[in-house]
Design a protein around this nucleic acid. Structure first.
Lengths: 214, 214
DNA sequence: TAGATTGTTAATCGATTAACAATC
DNA sequence: TAGATTGTTAATCGATTAACAATC
């Protein structure tokens, strides 16, 4: 049963599966059951089997899933079997940090261009990349086949930058600015605003009592 | 109807409401209906009314919600009406960036201590804060009344750091390391690993066609 | 009063989990 | 063969949405 409509909930779990599988691979585990995966992730084993079954029959009855094979398959599903080129807009502290975060390359996501609207930043170097001015954005997106843009500018500039990215033909946006972005349906916008995570964390601090009465 | 069991989905939306309300406040909007909020957030108005009604009767029939009042109320619900003290562990690039991100103070979340296990970092300054060695962690948590720890160390050190935080009596953890942390039920762990966001974004890039057939 | 909008119940929708035949 | 575990259907659970009486 291939390619029905896959829910966001399922897609969000795929990277988690990948992460745990990679850890198992390092530990040279060859085979894993949905039971074990469920234990490692605190997920229901049936859910894991169902999630994976949306995309194909990857397991073997009586045995489980072969770690290497499943990693390959999930990478294919996520489309990170080929390199995806990424642009970063906003060469501030956070932008710097993300550029240096070399985790990407391992996942075949590569930041290949950095932009900033502030003249003082343009021309400086981050991690071998020369910071470019905003008016080169559209051109660079096309030339370098960039598909994702990461926004690390202040909230009040985020929508303007998003518009420029969309104008330039970007396909997806990862937004770190604490504001809601408007974008057409074809452009996927993902939010990575940790201030919101921090706020929901605050909620649970003083509401622990209620939680425990479950 | 106060304090039933509130679902995670509801709690995750509260910071979003707060954000939009703050934007409305800046624009000096006095009153807003669930209809308008729903439009701004792409949420169903009934959902917004229901979410808010879990915590009290904040609106007025025929009129809507008073912006200032609702902001206050949500801040109370999230418990950010008083300052929450936060420790950051891992004085690398990302740690630096988060420290400088002054958004916190506005939300009454304040990073008041920074730690690193690497001797070379200890004693250096980030944003007026002197980086402390790990063996001072537990003491500082108690002395400074720190309730939340932010982990920005490499993945392979994250669990060790988490254990030290838990040992020290931390109540919540925001984890930026791309690994799953084990923690007792009393300690809330929130993940802020943007590499996962990036991977699910990748999925949608090449699966747009299917999406559009809805 | 008429129009607008809440709070809340009931209906719907979708996601998670249990169960089990198929089979390695 | 006996034990384990998948893929999948059916049952359950929970979250979202529609609808509407109450009321500003």
């Amino acid at each position: 049963m291939k390619q029905a409509k896959i829910s966001d909930a399922v897609v969000k779990r795929l990277p988690l599966y990948l992460q745990v599988l990679n850890e198992l691979k390092v530990r040279e585990v060859k085979t894993v059951s949905s039971q074990e995966l469920g234990h490692l992730l605190d997920f229901n084993p049936a859910q894991i089997r169902k999630d994976l079954a949306y995309f194909g029959d990857f397991g073997r009855k009586g045995i489980g899933y072969e770690v290497d094979y499943l990693i390959d398959k999930i990478r294919q599903i996520l489309k990170i079997d080929q390199t995806i080129y990424v642009a970063l807009i906003g060469a501030g502290n956070l932008g710097h940090a993300l550029c240096n975060y070399n985790k990407y390359s391992k996942d075949n996501m590569q930041i290949v261009a950095v932009f900033d609207s502030y003249e003082g930043k343009v021309g400086t170097k981050i991690n071998n990349l020369v910071v470019q001015p905003m008016d080169e954005l559209a051109d660079t997106i096309k030339k370098m086949n960039i598909r994702i843009g990461i926004i690390t500018v202040p909230a009040h500039e985020a929508q303007t930058v998003a518009n420029q990215l969309i104008e330039g033909g970007i396909e997806g946006i990862l937004n770190f600015a604490p504001t809601i972005l408007r974008a057409p349906d074809e452009v996927r916008v993902q939010h990575a605003d940790f201030t919101k995570e921090l706020l929901s964390l605050a909620y649970y601090l003083n509401h622990k009592e209620e939680e425990n009465n479950e």
